[in-house]
Amino acid sequence: MSVEQIIFVLTSLLILGSAFMVVTTRKLVQAALWLVSALFGVTILYAMLQANFLAVVQVVVYIGAIAVLFIFAVMLTRKELRDQGSQTRSNWWIAASLGVLVLAGLVSLIIGQPAFNRTAEVIPAGVDTLRNLGTALVSPDAYVLPFEVASVLLLAALVGAVFIASRKGEEK
């Protein structure tokens, strides 16, 4: 095994172990912290795939914002947290077998496809993927429309979240 493969295997063990702890651990604060660990592993994968911008965005948006938001929400609903008692539904084995089935199906699909055994070629010299991404996001013949729609979506989510979580509606 080459060095890259060893790093990949270690990173995937980190991701999968953390993800398993996220879905099984009892205490929700710990689950949120394990989520941070899993997201950090995904950041390493982005760096290995030479998607530098996405690696930074993963740290800033996912770990910096979303995970902190989760921890806030867990703290705000603390009374009902019920750390003792079961955190999983009684029919969790149906969920487990469904997950294993989906995984088996996907893996057999991936292994049966010889095109997926390829390794990546080197990015040609003179191609700046970061610059390409930046121009693609704002140029009219590329992706400016999805980009603007995403910004409208974020604004709507911002206003909606403030409205839903505010106390005003309850006083009526």
């Binding site: 991701i15 879905v23 539904r89 969920a95 487990a96």
Partner: peptide, 13 residues
């Protein structure tokens, strides 16, 4: 795929 299926298990259980 494995990460997706672990998440699926968490959502359902």
């Amino acid at each position: 795929a494995a990460l997706f299926c672990i998440g699926l298990f968490g959502v359902l259980s």
